[in-house]
Amino acid sequence: MSIQSLTVNQFRNLDYANINFAPSLNLIVGDNGSGKSSLLESVFFLGHGKSFRTNKIENLIQSEKDHFVVSAKDDQNHQLGVQRGKQGEIQIRINGDSKFRLSDLAKHVAVQVITPETFRLFFGGPKERRKFVDLGLFHVEHSFVGVWREFKKVLLQRNACLRQRIVGQQLDYYNQLFCQQSEIIAKVRSDYIERLANELNKWLAIIMPDLADNIALQYQRGWSKSRQLHELLAEHNEREIKYGYSLFGAHKFDVQFSFNRQPVEQVLSRGQQKLFLMALTIAQANLIFESQQIAPIILIDDIGAELDQHSRAVLAKAIGKLTCQLFITAIEKNALEAMLPEQQNYKMFHVKHGVVTEITQGEKHE
């Protein structure tokens, strides 16, 4: 899908904005604090029901206001909207109907984001990588949501038994379910990681051709590949009771990114790491498109950071091969020059003090 028009009310420093976007490429310039990142954040919120910058809803709502609204019309003429209040109340509308949940909204809007915070995929621990992989699975493997929901219920029950030091038939029952569902989820994730790795190789060959052959993804399912899960649970039963939670299982999976068998963050430069993140995000976006035939939206915040002109030109070549809508921000317009397509099928916007204006061809901005 693509967003034809976006309306934002009382979101961060965007008091009110109503913008018509290009279906493919949208470039946004503005000083730090102008509101350009807030614009991307509002699009992200529409697809995820949360921010990529903060966990506190009150930080998204303008002071002295009690809620914000983000709504959009897509290329299929669907009207999508979300309203959040300071007390956590939420209202979601799809084509005027309010009987929907965030997961329903996410099915319409598949949003991937690359920001300075995306480097947490390397440095933020397994939790960040789990979020990234499971986001892709949510859109690509439709059965995953139900399976994962059932697993989490069993995980909660098993952890409750461990905390309460319950043994015997009750723990045995949850152990059996826990092992069965962990195996199912591990297989689904393993298959997805294999697909993602194959897709990633295609984009690395375009974006990082000199390094592509030495980069690898390694999936770790959450327990030793040489051991059965039920054996580990029996062996570490006393430890798990001591800690009060499950030490092994599908909830502990991880994905490692390596260059010549070393973590990429220890070998690649900051710019190379960002190019890798771009390739990884594009690969996942492409899998979503192939699975759903719904083009995802990619948000890239501050394209000028860590990337020189040559790297931006290489990235532009990759972007030209995508079937999706992109929103790219930069502080300076010249940082976007390498991204401009030969065809005039893009739009450029300037944001200043929370006001968004479209820049016409050849127009200068202050």
Rank of each mutant, 00 (worst) to 15 (best):
K73P: 00
V70S: 08
Q87E: 15
D15E: 13
R101T: 14
G125D: 00
A22G: 01
Y16A: 06
I92L: 04
N95F: 07
V8M: 00
L102W: 05
N95L: 07
G125K: 00
S42N: 12
E117M: 09
K56C: 01
Q76H: 14
E89I: 09
F52V: 09
V69L: 11
F21L: 03
K36A: 03
N55D: 12
G35V: 15
K56D: 09
G85F: 15
V109P: 05
K65C: 05
F119C: 01
G49V: 13
V8I: 15
D104F: 06
F52Q: 03
Q112K: 13
N32F: 05
V113K: 08
A17L: 03
V113M: 09
V82R: 05
G30P: 02
V70H: 09
H67T: 12
S98R: 10
F11W: 09
N9S: 09
A17E: 07
K56G: 03
H48A: 11
N77Q: 15
R12D: 05
K107L: 07
T54P: 01
G125W: 00
D104S: 04
L121Y: 06
D15P: 02
A17H: 05
V113C: 10
G47S: 06
N9T: 10
D75P: 01
L39R: 14
K99H: 11
K50G: 11
H48F: 10
G47E: 09
Q112N: 15
K56V: 11
G30S: 04
K73E: 04
A17C: 13
P116D: 00
G35H: 12
L14T: 06
Y16T: 10
F52K: 10
A17R: 03
D104Y: 03
G33H: 13
T115A: 10
N77S: 15
H108D: 02
D74N: 13
K86E: 09
D66N: 13
G47Q: 07
K99F: 06
G124I: 03
F119H: 10
G33F: 14
Q79Y: 05
L27R: 02
N13W: 13
D66E: 14
I28E: 01
K73R: 05
E64L: 14
Q79C: 01
D31V: 08
T7V: 12
K36G: 07
K86Y: 13
I114C: 05
T118P: 03
I94K: 09
L46S: 04
E117W: 05
T54V: 04
Q91V: 12
G85T: 04
I92S: 00
D75T: 14
N77W: 02
H108V: 03
H67F: 13
K56T: 12
G81T: 07
G30A: 08
